[in-house]
Structure formats: structure tokens, C-alpha cells
Lab assay of single mutants.
Amino acid sequence: GALPANLDDMKVAELKQELKLRSLPVSGTKTELIERLRAYQDQ
């Protein structure tokens, strides 16, 4: 599914939920979580 547009405004817990939905690792800082989601979306 498409990512929420406001990733930077989301809480870390919400970002981790998005990562879990995509079976991605949820470790790292908020910035790393956002980068991981964006990289996944670009595939």
C-alpha cells in the first residue's frame, strides 16, 4: 500500500506499525525508520 504522506509527523510507534505491515525491521531511530519505509516504497 501507499505510504502516509506525513511520515515525519508520525509517532515512532506508528512508523513501526507501518514497518511491521511490510515485514520490515523496526529497529533504529525515527529517521532510519522513515528512510527504510521510503526505500521500500521506491522498489
Rank of each mutant, 00 (worst) to 15 (best):
M10R: 02
K30L: 05
N6V: 08
A2M: 15
E14I: 01
L21F: 07
P4M: 14
P25G: 07
R38Y: 09
Q17R: 09
Y40W: 13
L7C: 07
S23W: 05
Q41G: 15
L21C: 06
R38M: 09
L21E: 12
I34Y: 11
Q41T: 13
Q41D: 15
L24Q: 09
P25S: 07
D9W: 08
M10L: 06
R22V: 05
V12L: 13
L15C: 00
S23P: 00
L7E: 00
Q17L: 04
L3G: 11
L37N: 04
L3Y: 15
T29G: 08
L15P: 01
L3Q: 04
K11I: 08
V12S: 04
Q17Y: 05
S27D: 13
E35K: 11
Q17V: 06
R22D: 04
A39C: 15
K16E: 09
D9Q: 12
G1R: 07
R38G: 10
T29E: 11
E18H: 03
S27K: 06
Y40C: 13
D8N: 10
L37V: 05
D8A: 14
K16D: 01
E14Q: 09
E35Q: 15
K11M: 05
M10Q: 03
D42G: 10
L19P: 01
P25H: 00
D9H: 12
K30H: 06
T29K: 09
Q17D: 05
E35W: 06
A39L: 13
G1C: 01
Q41A: 14
E18T: 02
K11Y: 01
Q17F: 06
R38D: 02
L37D: 05
M10V: 00
R38T: 06
A5F: 10
E14G: 07
N6C: 02
E14K: 06
I34K: 10
L24N: 00
R38F: 01
L24R: 03
A39E: 15
V12C: 06
K11G: 09
N6K: 13
K30E: 05
L15H: 01
L7T: 08
D42W: 04
Y40M: 11
Y40V: 13
D8C: 13
S27W: 08
T29R: 06
K30D: 02
T31P: 09
K30T: 09
L19K: 01
P25K: 08
L37A: 03
E35T: 07
E35S: 12
E32V: 09
L33V: 05
K16L: 03
L33Q: 08
A39W: 12
A5G: 12
L19S: 05
S23H: 13
Q41V: 12
P25L: 02
L21M: 15
P25I: 15
